[in-house]
Nucleic acid binder design. Structure first.
Lengths: 251, 251
DNA sequence: CCAAAAGTGTTATCCCTACACCCATGG
DNA sequence: CCATGGGTGTAGGGATAACACTTTTGG
């Protein structure tokens, strides 16, 4: 942006200067013991100070020749081996006291389909470059994280719940074929409340974002029709920004 | 944020390093020739390269001991003499090619009451430290701006229109006493469409954000009751972020 | 009295909610 | 046949939109 005023003199010592980092809060849905799915996110154990030993969001320094979103993708892949199906800027955190040195963190948030998580993790394990020190935690039950990362995750959760209300963002968590009950469970897990199956069905059917297949999932009861995401439908509204940046919403 | 990976080596030459700037898109409503009010925003003429001579958003470099929002307030005051009634982070712009050197701009957006604009401008003029090179432009009719600032203003406008739909944000543009017609004109100017006076009245009355006064504005027709903002009502929803950061929002 | 804005009332419509009800399967 | 989840129908409430109508002023 290089403003109209003269640039203030900057310290030549890089360690005293403001540095730009990029981190990502990336969610997926995991169903543990057959029952309710829950939101989980990957954290990385820090190996150096500050906060060595604590868990932190995956991230890294912004490279000088790299766009912000590219940096988010790269650092996420480097630390966790994951490539998200949806990626959006969350917020820029830059309070003076949030780290021992001055760091402005551009934080992204992302969603990843549960089946992709498995595939990507399996691929890395097979090729021997499995990321280390990465553990998935339930978003609702996190330990104390490094820096202001608990705060950041809270904000990302708030944004996710918010956005689920007015966009098809949750479809980014679904595999290729799923029942309406599957989708409803995901909404319920995100919103933390039960939804009426009948009304939920009508809402998503009327939204035009799903495609009915002629396949059914058979189980212990009446078979349930399988749906798949309508690939032409964006997961979220987006502003007038050409390359990236998203968002949406009523007096 | 200082990530789990080792910091990549940084150039000792500060001019080759990534720098962090802060800019602000600040809107107010101006009624020109008695008629429809229009959104206007202050721009600063650049006196040095790159883009010397072009108009740009008010802003400046982030000081190392200064929070982001503080930097936005400070640089806005330094370049324009203005102090906004509402300030919110808009987005972090950091594409590699947006400036000749690598600059990540944390952009804020703000609203300012029309009466405050006049008062602040008058105060600066009286004390002799009137900011120079500041001109107010209609948001709908901007020249070509420096850097990606046209793009940024477009995004800020989109956000404003969006937020006007689900929050009381527009009250931040109103003076102490105003008629419902005044307020409706502001909404109409932002949204770019006419609103039904009867329905608009009911909506704002039911919202509980305005206080009826017993004063009336007399004119060429039936006097109109004056209202004032309810000071206890936040202008916008905000997320779970403790110190700053705002936002809000249906399947 | 007239024009025009301020302000009130009424109706149709849509969407959401709740909940009653039928359908189809495995056991 | 029965328990259970899949799936459909329907009635009520709240918000919105459209517009008819009354009120009050200046000229």
């Amino acid at each position: 942006m290089t403003p109209a005023t003269a640039p203030s003199p900057r310290d030549a010592d890089a360690l005293d200067a403001t540095r730009v980092a990029v981190s990502t809060v990336i969610f997926t849905m995991r169903r543990d013991e057959g029952d309710c799915p829950q939101l989980v996110l990957p954290l990385v154990r820090r190996t150096r100070d500050p906060h060595a030993g604590l868990w932190a969001l995956p991230g890294g320094w912004l490279d000088i020749v790299e766009n912000l979103e590219d940096a988010a993708s790269r650092t996420l892949a480097e630390t966790t081996g994951l490539t998200p199906s949806y990626l959006e800027q969350l917020y820029a955190f830059g309070d003076v006291g949030r780290s021992t040195t001055r760091v402005v963190s551009i934080v992204y948030w992302a969603l990843l389909r549960a089946d992709e998580v498995d595939a990507q993790v399996a691929a890395h394990a097979a090729s021997g470059d499995a990321p280390e020190n990465v553990v998935w935690f339930p978003a609702a039950d996190l330990p104390t994280l490094a820096f202001d990362h608990n705060h950041i995750v809270d904000y990302a959760l708030w944004r996710l719940r918010n956005k689920v209300g007015y966009s098809r963002i949750a479809h980014g968590l679904m595999a290729d074929a799923f029942t309406l009950a599957d989708l409803r469970e995901v909404y319920e897990a995100i919103l933390g409340k039960r939804l009426d199956p009948a009304n939920f069905r009508r809402q998503v059917e009327n939204s035009g974002t799903l495609v009915r297949t002629e396949s059914f999932r058979t189980g212990s009861h009446r078979p349930a029709r399988l749906y798949r995401p309508h690939h032409d439908v964006e997961l979220a509204d987006r502003g007038p920004l050409a390359p990236a940046a998203h968002e949406s919403s009523t007096i």
